[in-house]
Amino acid sequence: MSPSVETTPPPSDRVRLRRKPGRGHHDRATIDAILDAAPLCHVGVVVDGQPYVTPTFHWREGDHLYIHGASKNRTLSVADGTEVCVTVSILDGLVLARSAMHHSANFRSVMILGRAHRIEDPDTKRARLKGFIESLYPGRWDALRPMTDTELKATAVLSLALDEASAKVRDGGPMDDEADLSWPVWSGVIPLRTALGAAVADAHTPAGTPPPALGMAVAPIPGSD
């Protein structure tokens, strides 16, 4: 997923990239791939004139992004029916140049703008929460103790259409000035990635029970094996 000249027009002027537009992507394939590779997002809302940004898990189903939390969560309560900004980012590497000015980072990111809506129908909410669990651990929902009506009521799920979204991607080495290329210091890329550790069962898991299958667990670096 290398930076390239934008070929898909932005869906609105609000999500048009002003700086480094060549790193921008507005095609859904790129946007969906980034959203599906990283489970953590940040939700920005304004409460009484004060901006707040809250980290939470997200998942995508088709043309909508979903977030969840406690029904009394302030961020989710304020976000319902209002304009929000949701961002997702993956850090792929540290880029070290021959000058401080040209140090950078390789990354993939998505910004989504729009009006969030709380899902009120219990059956729809339950289906979306199943989609959340299944996106992380395929096949696990049906093995779990069923969610109670009380638990469902205590959980809020918000939906955000992917109508206004943009991705920004940087990939590659340092972009030194020609005059600096002979400067005697190490330059290049230090890759970063999320790695899975060995699963650790708790004391109540029956012996021999296999760990769950994992879905959205690692965000591989573009171009890596």
Score class of each variant (00 low, 15 high):
residue 224 S to A: 13
residue 188 G to D: 03
residue 196 L to N: 08
residue 31 I to W: 09
residue 56 T to I: 06
residue 73 N to H: 12
residue 49 G to I: 06
residue 172 G to Y: 05
residue 201 A to I: 12
residue 29 A to P: 11
residue 75 T to F: 08
residue 170 R to G: 06
residue 39 P to E: 02
residue 16 R to A: 12
residue 153 K to P: 07
residue 46 V to D: 11
residue 209 T to L: 10
residue 107 F to R: 00
residue 17 L to Q: 12
residue 203 A to S: 13
residue 116 A to G: 09
residue 211 P to Q: 04
residue 146 P to D: 01
residue 9 P to C: 04
residue 108 R to N: 01
residue 113 L to C: 01
residue 195 A to K: 11
residue 132 F to R: 02
residue 74 R to Q: 13
residue 128 R to Y: 11
residue 162 L to K: 09
residue 40 L to K: 05
residue 152 L to N: 00
residue 220 P to W: 01
residue 174 P to F: 01
residue 103 H to T: 02
residue 171 D to H: 13
residue 115 R to P: 06
residue 101 M to H: 09
residue 88 V to H: 04
residue 86 V to E: 01
residue 168 K to C: 05
residue 108 R to A: 01
residue 115 R to F: 03
residue 164 E to D: 13
residue 193 R to F: 11
residue 90 I to A: 11
residue 81 G to N: 05
residue 111 M to S: 06
residue 157 V to I: 12
residue 129 L to I: 10
residue 113 L to P: 02
residue 52 Y to H: 14
residue 101 M to R: 08
residue 167 A to W: 00
residue 201 A to G: 07
residue 115 R to T: 15
residue 58 H to C: 03
residue 210 P to L: 04
residue 130 K to P: 02
residue 126 R to W: 04
residue 106 N to M: 09
residue 90 I to Y: 03
residue 105 A to D: 06
residue 120 E to R: 13
residue 205 T to H: 07
residue 55 P to T: 08
residue 111 M to V: 12
residue 148 T to C: 07
residue 219 A to M: 02
residue 16 R to T: 09
residue 137 Y to C: 15
residue 39 P to K: 01
residue 122 P to E: 08
residue 215 G to M: 03
residue 75 T to E: 10
residue 91 L to A: 14
residue 136 L to T: 08
residue 93 G to R: 05
residue 7 T to I: 11
residue 111 M to H: 09
residue 219 A to G: 03
residue 207 A to H: 09
residue 84 V to I: 09
residue 23 R to L: 09
residue 189 V to F: 00
residue 159 S to A: 14
residue 173 G to R: 00
residue 64 H to F: 10
residue 9 P to A: 15
residue 22 G to M: 08
residue 32 D to H: 15
residue 131 G to A: 06
residue 36 D to W: 03
residue 153 K to Y: 08
residue 204 H to S: 11
residue 53 V to A: 13
residue 16 R to S: 10
residue 49 G to V: 11
residue 180 D to A: 00
residue 39 P to L: 06
residue 76 L to A: 02
residue 48 D to H: 10
residue 83 E to Q: 14
residue 31 I to H: 10
residue 141 W to V: 07
residue 95 V to K: 01
residue 179 A to Y: 02
residue 37 A to N: 11
residue 135 S to R: 12
residue 104 S to Q: 00
residue 100 A to G: 08
residue 5 V to D: 15
residue 72 K to C: 08
residue 194 T to V: 09
residue 162 L to S: 08
residue 182 S to C: 10
residue 100 A to S: 03
residue 112 I to C: 07
residue 171 D to V: 03
residue 71 S to I: 14
residue 203 A to R: 15
residue 158 L to T: 00
residue 144 L to V: 09
residue 10 P to R: 07
residue 144 L to K: 01
residue 45 V to W: 01
residue 49 G to P: 03
residue 110 V to M: 07
residue 63 D to G: 09
residue 169 V to W: 05
residue 75 T to L: 10
residue 70 A to T: 09
residue 208 G to A: 00
residue 25 H to N: 08
residue 138 P to S: 02
residue 222 P to L: 03
residue 220 P to H: 06
residue 91 L to W: 07
residue 95 V to I: 01
